[in-house]
Amino acid sequence: MERVPMTRQGAEALKVTIAYLKGEKRHKIVATIEEARAHGDLSENAEYHAAKEEQGMNEARVKDLEDKIARAQIIDPASITSDKIVFGATVRLLDMNEETEIIYQIVGVDEADIEHGKISITSPISRALIGKEEGDVAAVQAPRGEREYEIQSIEYI
């Protein structure tokens, strides 16, 4: 059974999502099914079939998230002491192509949110950064060509 790395915050966010899907979302779908069922002939009732499909997708999502929580390997970045970049690191980078500074935290796949500076451990940038130290340069193959990032600092918070 493959472990799923995630931060404590990521695991808590998944639990909140599961609670929503099993509670409020499930009740809304059931109400929609009941309403569609009241319209009569189910064989030609598009609303009924759409609601049943949504119900199936919701239940599949619940099972997927529950499986990930069951296999979670919770990692507390604050407990890590390393000079190298590993999972959970918050890194300050200098984009050498644009001369701009970027801050990313390397997190689990389900917690990634680029708008909030959280990148997946499986992303090309993360893969290029893992194992590097302050002062190193990481080359990342991007759609618009190779990008280079100089590592300014590494923190585990």
Rank of each mutant, 00 (worst) to 15 (best):
E2M: 10
R3L: 08
R3I: 06
M6Y: 05
T7F: 00
L14Y: 00
L14K: 02
K15Y: 00
A19W: 07
L21W: 13
K22H: 05
G23I: 06
E24M: 05
H27A: 15
T32Y: 11
E35N: 12
L42Y: 01
A46P: 15
H49Q: 13
A50D: 10
A50Y: 04
E54Y: 11
M57D: 13
N58G: 09
R61W: 10
R61H: 14
R61M: 15
V62L: 12
V62M: 08
K63H: 13
D64C: 09
E66F: 06
K68T: 08
A70N: 14
R71I: 04
Q73N: 09
A78C: 01
S82V: 07
S82I: 02
K84C: 03
I85E: 02
V91M: 05
R92V: 14
L93F: 08
L94A: 07
E98D: 12
T100M: 10
D113V: 07
H116R: 14
H116K: 14
G117V: 00
G117R: 03
T122K: 08
P124M: 02
P124S: 09
I125E: 03
S126Q: 01
A128D: 02
A128C: 07
L129Q: 05
I130T: 04
D136C: 02
V137I: 15
A142H: 05
E146F: 01
E148T: 14
E150V: 08
I151P: 08
I154P: 06
I154F: 01
Y156D: 04
I157E: 15
